[in-house]
Amino acid sequence: MTGLAGCLGGDGDTRTWMIPWGEGGGTDTYARQMQPLAEEELDGSIEIENREGAGSMIGSEWLLDQDDDGSVFGTVNPAGWTFTWRADESLDWHPTDFEPIAYSGIFGYTIIVNNEYEIEDYGELRDAYEDGDISNFAYQGAGSDSHLATLLLQEEYDLNADNIVPYDGGGPVQEAVLGGEVEAGIATNTSAIDAVDSGEASAIVNLMDIDLTDTFPEIDRISEYGDSLGWLTEFYQVQVAPPGTDEDTRQEISEAIQYACEHDDTQEWMDDTGNIVEYGDMAAAEEQYNDAAIEEIESNVDDAIGGFDEFLNLAEDAE
Rank of each mutant, 00 (worst) to 15 (best):
N160E: 14
D248Y: 03
D127F: 09
S56M: 14
E181V: 12
E120N: 14
D272R: 13
A184G: 02
L125P: 08
D214N: 13
G226H: 10
T110H: 05
Q35M: 12
A315F: 02
V177N: 03
D197T: 07
A38Y: 00
E268N: 10
G306Y: 00
G3C: 10
G70K: 08
G171V: 14
M57R: 15
L8A: 05
A79W: 01
F107H: 13
D309S: 12
I305M: 15
G199E: 05
P217N: 06
G12Q: 00
H147A: 15
R221T: 03
W81Q: 02
G24C: 08
E52H: 11
N313E: 14
G59L: 09
D145Q: 04
N300F: 01
T110W: 02
G244V: 03
A284F: 00
Y236F: 06
I193S: 00
A256R: 01
L212W: 09
T82E: 00
N189F: 14
D272N: 14
F107C: 05
E23M: 13
Y139D: 04
E310L: 08
G307M: 00
D11H: 11
D11T: 13
N206C: 03
E130Y: 12
I297D: 00
N300S: 10
G170Y: 13
V301S: 07
E287N: 12
P166G: 11
E116G: 01
D317T: 06
Q154K: 15
N77M: 08
Q140W: 02
W269A: 13
E252L: 13
M208H: 01
E155V: 06
D220R: 10
E47D: 09
H263D: 14
G199K: 05
V205C: 09
E120F: 12
C7W: 07
A241Y: 03
D65A: 14
I106C: 04
Q140P: 04
V196M: 03
P217V: 13
E296H: 09
N313V: 05
M208P: 06
I294D: 01
L314N: 12
W17S: 01
E124A: 15
G53N: 05
E175C: 02
I111H: 00
E268K: 10
S71I: 06
D302K: 08
E295H: 06
Q251T: 14
E224S: 15
D220Y: 09
I19A: 01
S56C: 12
T29H: 07
D28R: 04
Y259H: 15
H94T: 11
G179V: 09
Y157P: 11
G274W: 09
